[in-house]
Design a protein around this nucleic acid. Structure first.
Lengths: 198, 198
DNA sequence: TAATATATTGAATATAAATTCAACGAATAT
DNA sequence: ATATTCGTTGAATTTATATTCAATATATTA
């Protein structure tokens, strides 16, 4: 790996980083190549030296995101509430200092219903149905009183939709991303937890 | 009002209705005039007979939305929880049969951070800061134990962000909009309510 | 240092979407 | 029934954005 290759890789990373932030804040269609170029402080033409197209750039981000945000699947947890609390604690915590994960989370959550995202990109996400997976955990946990009563899929849907909503607002309003102003992740866990436990 | 005028007004309403649905599902930038024209079953050119531009069409929707979604301000409530429960109950209820309000809610919630929305449209919403208003109600209600402890603004932010997230997902996935699958609005109220009450 | 490869730019081109417009058919008024 | 206005279309035109490209600067290699 020559010095130049490293430089190139860093440049690519810079573009990706800025693009992630912009895609999260504004969505795919509203984010212009020119916006990303400006954020990365380079000419529009140069963007195409590093990435074949806007679509390919986005695809690389989605692939990256598919690795990073699937955290819960690989967690070990002693009780099923930890699955959710652990993930949210991490997500909320990092949102303050390293918004990267939050941005990725926002982008990933929108892919499902964004028509401008080509279908081969959507396929990257096959098999990562967060709502489905969580519904199973909730269903299992309900038997032992870990979660409130109600349809597990609906609960899971409500939970992840809420998290998505909060992350989207946090992405858009950085002034909320301080220790003082950040919502407490436990408030959100209460969506599925109810008042059954302590 | 001649028959022709009525016809014209109906046509305009049809366009608005379809546009609301599409703007809610895909966002402003991703919704093409052609999409709306197709949904309303007319030529693209004809759209411009009814609306000066995409922007003006959107503006009309926002004005309309500014009237409809500001419901909570005008509600009477005996205890402050009713303010939130009443609104959510209404919103969730109508989402099933008349998704119109849900779509408007989604659109309105995105205006704040959508750069493609011109600033004179954003100004329509000045004075309707849902989060701010709710924070005051929460702050007042906390003294009497209606709400959980925590920064009122953060609680309000978390609550409305969650609602926004759920409405966005419901807008995109109509299969969740049935009596059986819909989340229970009380789960969401628990974000601010905590387990202080019954 | 000369030769070669890579990075960068700004201008040209291509593409997609919004908007305008001339033409025509259908409704309404005189 | 004729003239006038309105609704409609499809084909131009304009505008915004993505993409390509020739030219130049900068770095690397021989």
């Amino acid at each position: 790996m020559t010095a130049r290759d490293e430089q190139k890789e860093q440049r690519r990373q810079l573009i990706i980083e800025k693009a992630i932030e912009l895609f999260a804040k504004k969505g795919y269609a509203e984010t212009k190549i020119g916006d990303i170029a400006r954020a990365a402080d380079m000419s529009v033409g140069l963007m195409f030296h590093y990435f074949e197209s806007k679509e390919k750039l986005f695809e690389e981000i989605v692939r990256h995101g598919a690795m990073r945000t699937n955290y819960p699947r690989e967690m070990n947890f002693s009780d099923p509430l930890d699955y959710f609390e652990g993930f949210l604690k991490m997500l909320f915590h990092y949102s303050i200092e390293q918004p990267h994960i939050m941005y990725l989370f926002v982008i990933m959550g929108r892919i499902g219903f964004s028509e401008s995202v080509p279908s081969d990109i959507k396929e990257i996400l096959n098999g990562i149905n967060q709502v489905e997976q969580s519904a199973e955990i909730i269903a299992a946990g309900q038997k032992y009183g870990y979660f409130r009563e109600g349809d597990p899929y609906s609960l899971s849907f409500a939970f992840w939709s809420s998290v998505q909503g909060i992350m989207e607002q946090l992405a858009a309003f950085p002034e909320m991303r301080t220790k003082e102003k950040m919502p407490d992740y436990k408030w959100i866990v209460d969506i599925i937890r109810g008042k059954n436990n302590d």
